[in-house]
Amino acid sequence: MDPEFRGDADHHDGTSDATPGGYADQRRPGELVFAGLMTAGSAALLWNAYGIAGFDALSSPGAIPMATAAVMLVTSVITLVRTIGLQKVAGETLAKDILPMIVLVMFVLLVGFGIALKPVGFLPTAAVFLIISMKIMARRSWPYTFAVALGSLALIWLVFRIVFTVLLPAGIVPESEFIQFFRSLVQAGAK
């Protein structure tokens, strides 16, 4: 066992943030590509940091960024070299253990949520997201899925939008007119 590895070797899936996943002495599918990307990224950052102010002054805004990018480059190269020397984990494939179908589907749904949020508005986007993802994962009946999704959405909307007046993107739903209408109604009732 690598003496440098101080983690818990049982959890290869990253049980908590203090004990990250991975194996100390084996390489997971895609790990080499990731280490390569990190190295390339660090090199690009170092170049960019040098571009901020060069070696102008110790107090230049580029001093700390350059130092950190240099540390990133050195550590990522060490990691890359070590990873190259490791054997692949037997029996793990990218499609099965790193990016199974359900993860890819959720990626797509999340990206869709992000893109639609602004133009369409929070309420319809979130409703569609919750209904689709819950239906795919839980495989329960449509009425049940609808009830859980819309019920929890209504609760979250009430807390954020009404109680904490967070202006979530309204999109195509005339939210503020709606709320003002009820406000006026309540005020009229009070008078």
Partner: peptide, 24 residues
Amino acid sequence: GAVSALVLAATGALAADYPAKEIQ
């Protein structure tokens, strides 16, 4: 909803009933 929003938005610009909705 979209239609009613449009209608409201169009009328909302008239000062007579400004403010017709919340102001940010």
